[in-house]
Design a binder for these strands. Structure first.
Length: 423
RNA sequence: GGAGAGUUGGCAGAGUGGUCGAAUGCACCGGUCUUGAAAACCGGCAUACCGAGAGGUAUCGAGGGUUCGAAUCCCUCACUCUCCGCCA
């Protein structure tokens, strides 16, 4: 959520920059500022009236004490009138406030100036490509076939137990998952991220904090009886650690990582790209989160991108880095880099990480602030990124490393798997 | 699932109708003292909104009510804790 004061003071710029994400903010922002204006006027009146009422009340108290009953009663009559007006003003004020809140909820974050214009992921700017596509032997197959050939993942069994999109990992497939988990967490810890194990179900307030609610509740599984949501990413519980928190400047940077399963309903996203591990309702992911001083957030973003690159390089996966264009940029993000891994048998680039700087957009909802050297409170900046999402990494590992003899495990992972090849 | 207790500032904890945004202690920040530190003493120390400022308003779990006036009384809801039961 953007700050109203910021919009008020930078109206033209905000509208202009929102155009980059193909968001025509002219109308909604005009409406917003109108409501804001009204809100402030109403509050001014209300405050003045309340001040008067407070004064009178104090006088009445004094008069009673002195035993001047009649004078006190006379004043009482006066307050009755004020009360009526105040009730009306109060109502007007909360209408304006709600309206303002509602409008603010629907304005996306202002893209960073370096975000390229564009409509869809096709317009993303590939800023780097690393590694060469592997040469596959004749008869190389996509990962879902490898998964079944080597008995690593049973998709049909998952359908029986739960439904489509809930695979069962077995044997070396399960072991590989566990290897990735430890590999990712060990590296994150080494990079200074504190390991966290958050709850997998979250309450409503938490959902609002990171922006899944109120608009995107369809993305999350919901437990009816208890009104809890299954997390779509560790970002939700981990970032909410900082909800309603006022940090000290010395507390920066806050670096957390967390492994969690992620649950996504992904309604309406079925189509050509959903085979095998490409898109699931339940998957595993290690997430890294940072809360930093506003002055450092872009530097931090770069660091996070470098960190994720280093993981992919250790896994010997060819990847490319995309700077998301305005049209592909998430609602809450100011700048996002996607990391895509090349999965050879499918001949596809698979998104395995998305690293974003939300600036103060998320912090504003979360009320995550810090006390500056100037003694005032300011909003912190929040960032997060996947490091990494398991299934697509697994898909690429299987496809890229397949040989007629079996699937070779990259060196860095062998200490974690305990085997070098899957046969 | 049954029974009870509770929710006040960073923490602990007073406050049961007016002078309470809220005692006191701890923590924290600044100062005096000290070679330095500790102790002691002095001062400061919630958040948000409105306002150029002076200042004003709101907030004692949330919402509603009574009252000239509510942290304090009434109603509804949420959450937390304790005991019993069940259970990894």
């Amino acid at each position: 959520m953007l700050q109203i004061a910021y919009i008020r003071e930078n109206k033209a710029e905000v509208i202009e920059r929102l155009k980059v994400r193909n968001f025509d903010g002219e109308e909604i922002i005009n409406k917003l500022l109108e409501v804001d204006q009204k809100r402030r006027e109403t509050q001014g009146q209300l405050d003045a009236n309340l001040a008067e009422a407070n004064t009178i009340s104090k006088q009445i108290g004094g008069l009673y004490k002195e035993g001047k009953r009649e004078e006190a009663d006379a004043l009482k009559a006066k307050t009755a009138e004020l009360k009526e007006t105040n009730k009306a003003l109060q109502e007007m004020l909360s209408i304006s406030e709600n309206e303002m809140q509602e409008l603010l909820y629907h304005i996306p974050n202002v893209p960073n100036p370096q975000v390229p214009a564009g409509k869809s992921d096709e317009d993303n700017e590939i800023i780097d490509t690393h590694g060469d596509a592997p040469t596959l032997h004749d008869g190389a197959v996509p990962h879902w076939e490898l998964a079944s050939k080597y008995n690593l993942i049973d998709f049909e069994l998952g359908v029986k137990i739960t439904g489509a999109g809930f695979p069962v990992y077995r044997g070396k497939g399960a072991r590989l998952q566990r290897a990735l988990l430890n590999f990712f967490l060990d590296h994150a810890t080494e990079a200074g991220y504190q390991e966290t194990q958050p709850p997998l179900l979250v309450n409503e307030a938490t959902g609002y904090g990171t922006g899944q609610l109120p608009d995107k509740e369809g993305q999350m599984y919901h437990t009816e009886l208890d009104h809890l949501y299954l997390i779509p990413t560790a970002e939700v519980p981990v970032t909410n650690i900082f909800r309603d928190v006022i940090l000290k400047e010395d507390d920066f940077p806050q670096k957390l990582c967390g492994y969690t399963p992620c649950f996504r309903r992904e309604a309406g996203s079925y189509g050509k790209d959903v085979r095998g591990l490409n898109r699931l309702h339940q998957f595993d992911k290690v997430e890294i989160v940072q809360v930093v001083h506003p002055d450092n957030s872009y530097e931090t973003l770069d660091q996070m991108v470098s960190y994720v690159r280093s993981l992919l390089e250790k896994l010997e996966l060819p990847y490319r880095v995309a700077k998301l264009c305005g049209g592909d940029l998430g609602f809450t993000s100011a700048l996002t880099f996607d990391m895509e891994v090349y999965s050879a048998a499918q001949d596809k680039w698979l998104e395995v990480s998305s690293i974003s700087n939300f600036e103060s957009f998320q912090a504003n909802r979360l009320k995550c602030r810090f006390k500056g050297k100037d003694g005032k409170t300011h909003l912190a900046h929040t960032l997060n990124g996947s490091a990494l999402a398991f299934p697509r990494i697994l898909a690429a590992l299987l496809e890229n490393n397949q040989t007629p003899e079996g699937i070779k495990i990259p060196k860095a992972l062998v200490p974690y798997t305990g085997f070098e090849i899957i046969q």
